[in-house]
Design a binder for these strands. Structure first.
Lengths: 240, 240
DNA sequence: GTCTATAAGCAGATAGAC
DNA sequence: GTCTATCTGCTTATAGAC
């Protein structure tokens, strides 16, 4: 998923011949360890990308391993060779999505200036909604369904992150750099608004037209969201 | 769903005797038309309520008519007697949810004062998220999945509503009653933030605790969301 | 209007040849 | 590492007795 995504694994099927001639006879069945690892990595990441799309479209229960395998151009049995159960595959997708969320979350601490920190975080979240809307949809689906498979991530990783950011926002409020906002409400508004551009893509397309989701339209929306969030939080830069 | 919701249909099973004695013999199989209509209304609304919960939890593809019927305490065949297909049942649920959205949307026009109009609309949407989170989740699931079953509602009903509201917001901007906001971005932010309290209930519960979703906690969040949206839009009341 | 039984097909997962 | 065939159980929907 991270280093590969849209290429089909068809290439693998015609590239099994090893580099060394003496292994050519049984090469199709016993690829060198190096190549085996490469095939595994390629198929796994491709299956993960296809799974992300299917889970986004149909949710965990609605997704079928047959459809995921079909989109990946592989027999269903191969999917079960790489991922023993549908749930294991789903977990990998969720974990992958979380890692990117985590990277975007770092931008919150990029500055001591709330205008820079909050503005930068909103831009990072909007960029993520643009670049990987399917991942956001899988996350949303999981939460809507009750988040049964994400309690660990929420409690052990997201909650601690949120609590330190709550403290930071409270300090900014005390320093007069923010309006007296409730920190959690502010964070929820940021998440809700930025993820709306990924999760509700279909609604935005129907209501605002394709242009709104073009590169230029999205960039304009991003800056407008940044302005509105900054006004909502009453952020101002500290005096140098 | 509208006039009935949480009562089980068990009452029906023991109340089939008609009021008139002369019909007592075959009453169980041939209830009077009046009673038949009442039974139909009761079972339909109860099935709709259970369907809303299951579609919210598992999406359209993931939901099964067997589970919906089981929750309603009815044999699966009865569900198909009232709703010929799973899709027909789903449409009824979506339409029902839309009708309540529509009612909340009216509050936007309750005043010519943007502070009152926007604040009232946000409060109405928050109240809807609180009162009927499952409906909001079904809507969200449908949009995330591509909104294939909601193009009509979106294009013929939501879009026209939005366009008149965009005009209204633009007028307020011209009159200096709002900051120079992009109207659609403002509406998306309102929808995203208020619906977040329904759709992402499980995440809020995990991150902010049960107290945040108590009656008092929700009321406090509502007023904080109203304040933040009003600041984001730069709304001020017209001079009398 | 209710409900048992069943049809016809799809689900997740596995066996075992290659 | 690949893939066909298959097991078991669940899916939507219907038939037909009551």
């Amino acid at each position: 998923m991270r280093d590969d995504d849209t290429t089909t694994p068809a290439a693998n099927l015609t590239m099994r011949a090893p580099r060394a001639g003496r292994e050519a006879a049984d090469a199709a069945h016993k690829p060198a360890p190096r190549r085996k690892a490469a095939i595994r990595a390629s198929n796994e990441s491709h299956l993960l990308a296809c799974a992300e799309a299917v889970f986004a479209e149909r949710g965990f229960e609605g997704a079928s391993t047959a459809l995921i395998a079909e989109r990946a151009g592989l027999p269903k049995a191969n999917l079960h060779y790489y991922f023993p159960t549908k749930l294991a595959l789903y977990w990998r997708v969720l974990d992958d999505v979380f890692e990117e969320w985590n990277a975007a979350a770092d931008t919150f601490d990029a500055s001591d200036d709330p205008v820079q920190a909050i503005g930068g975080y909103v831009r990072a979240k909007m960029a993520l909604s643009r670049r990987r809307p399917l991942g956001s949809k899988v996350w949303a689906n999981e939460i809507i369904s009750g988040a049964a498979h994400m309690q660990d991530i929420l409690l052990e990783r997201v909650k601690p992150w949120m609590e330190t950011r709550v403290t930071l926002i409270e300090r900014w409020v005390e320093e007069g750099l923010l309006a007296p906002v409730d920190p959690k409400t502010l964070l929820f508004m940021i998440w809700a608004t930025t993820q709306h551009y990924a999760d509700f893509e279909a609604q935005i397309r129907a209501l605002a037209g394709k242009r709104a989701l073009s590169a230029a339209g999205f960039e304009a929306s991003t800056e407008e969201v940044v302005r509105m969030i900054l006004r909502a939080s009453g952020a101002r830069s500290p005096q140098a």
